[in-house]
Design a protein around this nucleic acid. Structure first.
Lengths: 407, 407
DNA sequence: GAATTAGTTTATCGAGTCAACAAACTGCCA
DNA sequence: TGGCAGTTTGTTGACTCGATAAACTAATTC
């Protein structure tokens, strides 16, 4: 029974799966909706829709909410996803914490927890802690005697989807940890493992500002610069899951030295350290600024700079402006490469996106010549702190509501 | 009957189509091959395979070639694609020519033609000429009373796949020409329209050095620098078909002015003009070189520089070396973004890839730190002059042998 | 002739379609 | 106010298509 890799096929059940997923997809997008409307939306026969709906109500994934009359004719029985069908659990492994989120089937907040990680990041210890927290969240869930649809884990590192391994997580000091398999075995549930930026991108696609878009670039601006690519409504992970590492594209071969050993990486120009550098340099030059004290006491922080800029501080404004300009230059390259409809800016820095986006947009417009190139929209992410865990929920959603080809 | 856009579904014939395509795919890759082996390869039941094979023999897309015994047991009846099943026709609209290629069903050369385009590039006139050439090629084909599987047309410009329009072809002076629809109407055959670099990428995927790879970057190095992206075995075109315009990613914000109005575009560093510039500058500095005469008489050409370099000319070698180095820097960025398994270098310059690839590879290795990043393979394209027309054949192949989700 | 492998025949099943119908409403007119 | 026409929703039953499984025939080697 050597199944093929390119398509999932072999039996007719495939058709049922496709159509079931198709109906779930539309239910999620258009709920509340009737069987008749679903038949219209999907092109499936009314009979087929009824049959699939019967199955789905059987597994309690959807439910009927009363009839709703709309003009002449028999009133429609409206359907929607059943929030109580079960739970979705998502975890983020941070540099010094583990965060957990549990939602119901309609992705509504239910429960949250966060624990610090004790140094050092011995992978076995962290895994133990993670498994404990997950088991706790699951047993909490099972009290309600409900299903757990999936568990997602986001990590700050490179993940190989094929093998379900964390290949490399510099900030944790991890190398080739087969996390997905271990968790799946430990919890006996479907586990999704991915890089946190990829997950965050999916989060914006399903629940955030990227809803309805098919080609999206997501960037996280924090201490570093990461990213995720949505191509054709699917997460693009590249050959081994390394795709989207925008932070280390070379922007200026003679630029600042980057931690990676090269010069002028995107993240040397657009990141928190880059922002602080601008401020420090200005202070060193003696420019008047509200931020002088923060620099002197080495207490520079993002909110401080943003506040100053918002209240008109020239040094703060200039710092954001030059980040915004560099961002625009980099985005122009990415647009030439990808031609996305939407670019989403996430990460902590996106909380001050109003200080950067106009300038970035201006730079983009100048560089791309809109009369021969459709300009993508630039938008700030909906999620910042909880981007990764919401992305985890979205990753499980993606398994349920989206049909993927394998391989 | 509003069919849905996300999946092709609606009736069970979908499964038949999938499985038929699946079998054709394996037949192409593994021919000659028996029914039993196909059953193994695809995971489909022997009966199903037999039934599909019966259909395919009925439409004469495949044929039986005698039995072949291999040890004990009944000898297998081997199958292969039927070269005479029909024809595939491919055209390239160049700046001053139209090239045509006709192959049989197994993509073997059959017939070729090339006509100059008379200035100016009035789109109506060019289209007339194209239609004439295509009709000629088709009627030639129909003498054999065979099927034409499809017609592909590659253009040097931006193509919107959704609408089948040439949005913008600067070198032809074209704007929003609905070429696909016009040809489909005129010829009453399935027509595929795409950018020439995209097509060339598909050509390498199906017939060239990229066979068997799933994530590939293709670059054409000529007067400009173009590209195509293969993601997950499919051509990635972006939102409106603009993806893969690698030529205008910014490599150095203080670099040379590019025709596009920006500075330091990739194509100002890696292209034929860039190569010639290196040579001219060296000559102007008075460095000794075989190329001095060519520069003086303004007869500088690619083969000349390549020849000189191959025979040890220092200026020629240095010119290629600096192109190779810049190429490596740019590729490092692209690898960070895409994580491809393979990078293919095409275009005229790839004919001297042995003068650039080692240096580019070296630069790539230094920048990407192979111990934390799997290095992609770098390879010269199989096709240069005929890259576009072979790509056109591949584009038709892609319709026949690959299953695409719509939308 | 036994063993082995290839391919076909026959019966069955799963899933989608179509057409007809039952159900439940609105609206209009007597 | 009652009743029937018109309309839309959802279900039932007959049918079809395509995949599967098991048994069978076919053609070879040893």
């Amino acid at each position: 029974m050597m199944a093929d890799d390119r398509f999932r096929t072999g039996d007719q059940a495939l058709v049922r799966t496709i159509n079931q997923t198709l109906i779930l997809h539309h239910l999620r997008q258009t709920a509340p909706v009737s069987r008749a409307a679903l038949s219209e939306l999907t092109g499936l026969n009314k009979t087929t829709v009824s049959s699939i709906i019967r199955d789905l109500i059987g597994t309690s994934m959807i439910r009927e909410i009363g009839a709703q009359s709309g003009g002449a004719g028999r009133p429609a029985i409206m359907l929607e996803l059943n929030p109580d069908a079960g739970y979705i659990i998502s975890a983020e492994i941070g540099v010094d914490f583990i965060a957990l989120l549990r939602t119901n089937f309609t992705a509504e907040f239910q429960w949250q927890s966060r624990s610090p990680i004790r140094e050092p990041h011995d992978s076995a210890a962290v895994l133990n802690q993670l498994v404990g927290m997950l088991k706790n969240a699951i047993s909490n869930a099972l009290i309600g005697n409900r299903r757990v649809f999936g568990v997602a884990v986001g990590v700050p590192g490179l993940v190989d989807q094929q093998s379900g391994q964390v290949l490399f997580a510099p900030n944790l000091g991890w190398h080739t940890i087969p996390l997905e398999g271990m968790l799946a075995h430990e919890l006996d549930l479907p586990v999704s493992l991915d890089n946190e930026a990829n997950m965050a991108a999916l989060g914006e696609l399903y629940f955030g500002v990227a809803q309805g878009y098919k080609n999206v670039l997501y960037l996280t601006l924090d201490v570093g610069l990461g990213g995720g690519i949505i191509s054709n409504g699917q997460l693009f992970t590249g050959n081994a899951g390394f795709a989207g590492e925008f932070g280390h594209i070379t922007m200026d071969p003679h630029g600042k030295l980057c931690g990676c050993g090269n010069r002028g990486c995107f993240e040397t120009l657009v990141s928190l350290p880059a922002l602080y550098d601008h401020v420090r340099t200005a202070v060193a030059r003696g420019e008047p600024t509200l931020l002088a004290d923060l620099v002197r006491t080495d207490m520079l922080n993002f909110e401080g700079v943003a506040e100053a800029a918002r209240s008109g501080d020239q040094v703060g404004l200039a710092a954001f402006a030059s980040i915004g300009r560099a961002l625009g230059v980099g985005l122009a390259s990415l647009v030439n490469i990808f031609d996305p409809q939407l670019i989403v800016l996430g990460g902590e820095m996106s909380r001050a996106s109003e200080l950067m986006l106009p300038i970035a947009t201006e730079e983009l417009t100048v560089r791309l010549k809109p009369w021969q190139h459709p300009l993508p929209t630039l938008a700030a992410a909906r999620y910042t702190r909880d981007a990764c865990v919401m992305g985890g929920i979205a990753t499980v959603y993606d398994r349920i509501f989206n049909l993927h080809r394998r391989g």
